[in-house]
Design a binder for these strands. Sequence first.
DNA 1: TTCAATGCAAATTTTTTGCAAAGTC
DNA 2: GACTTTGCAAAAAATTTGCATTGAA
Lengths: 138, 138
Amino acid sequence: MNTYQHRSYIEVLRSHGIRPLNHRVAVYEYLAKHPVHPTADQIYTDLRKNMASISRTTVYNVLHLLTEKNVITPITIDPKELRFDANTQEHVHFLCEKCHRVFDLESMESQPTVSVPDGFTIGSVSLYVKGTCPACAE
Amino acid sequence: MNTYQHRSYIEVLRSHGIRPLNHRVAVYEYLAKHPVHPTADQIYTDLRKNMASISRTTVYNVLHLLTEKNVITPITIDPKELRFDANTQEHVHFLCEKCHRVFDLESMESQPTVSVPDGFTIGSVSLYVKGTCPACAE
DNA sequence: TTCAATGCAAATTTTTTGCAAAGTC
DNA sequence: GACTTTGCAAAAAATTTGCATTGAA
């Protein structure tokens, strides 16, 4: 493990008021290093390979905690499964309806400036695009 | 039941190549008349009151069919539950994180014109906003 | 009569919960 | 030692499937 990077994950957690326990760092580091928007089960299955002691319950616990503290973002683009993203910058997500991969479209034009009627308060904005990715277009 | 309206639901289904069987019309009509973005279970429970013969399986079947034929739109704004909307016009959805109601923001500025990298093909675009609604703001 | 749609019950999948054991400060 | 986190197993919730029955053209 790259200690320098590892330390920075710990710092991110600390700066959000989260005690950087091993399992928490592992889940966060996994998400940061695998920006493919994995599901809870994918995270659990993969982490399990190198970390025999982690349980499904803990993965759910940590994902809830990180979401609540705004360290990660849940992505609901696919009705079938909830995915997670360590990149909390607002950016567009693209779901390929053939291969079911989710792509980041960070380079695209900035998020729309949404305005809402009086009385509504905006917490977050998500822009989801569905269609076909280049690999599946052929 | 208002026969004129009823007939128009039938026409919508026909125009999308869907045989307007009773249960299908009932689900579609329910969604059209209850634009609160209900879940499959809400639809089932409510329809059940007036239509003893409908089953959960049929509700799921019909929702799948209508979605596939683009007569309704599934809404994934809330990670907890899948909702449905008979309004297939693109419009913004707002989830109140306190009362968990979903509002249409049709009057808001038009959907952003999203552009995607070469090779990607856009099928649909969803703009989801989360926050607090007027009633819960107090 | 032939094919499509329905409904039941069971299976699957995903997530949550209670609680005892283990870990942290 | 006091408090937090974890892991197991069981429960709950949501959706899908197999298949026999019913309905429609």
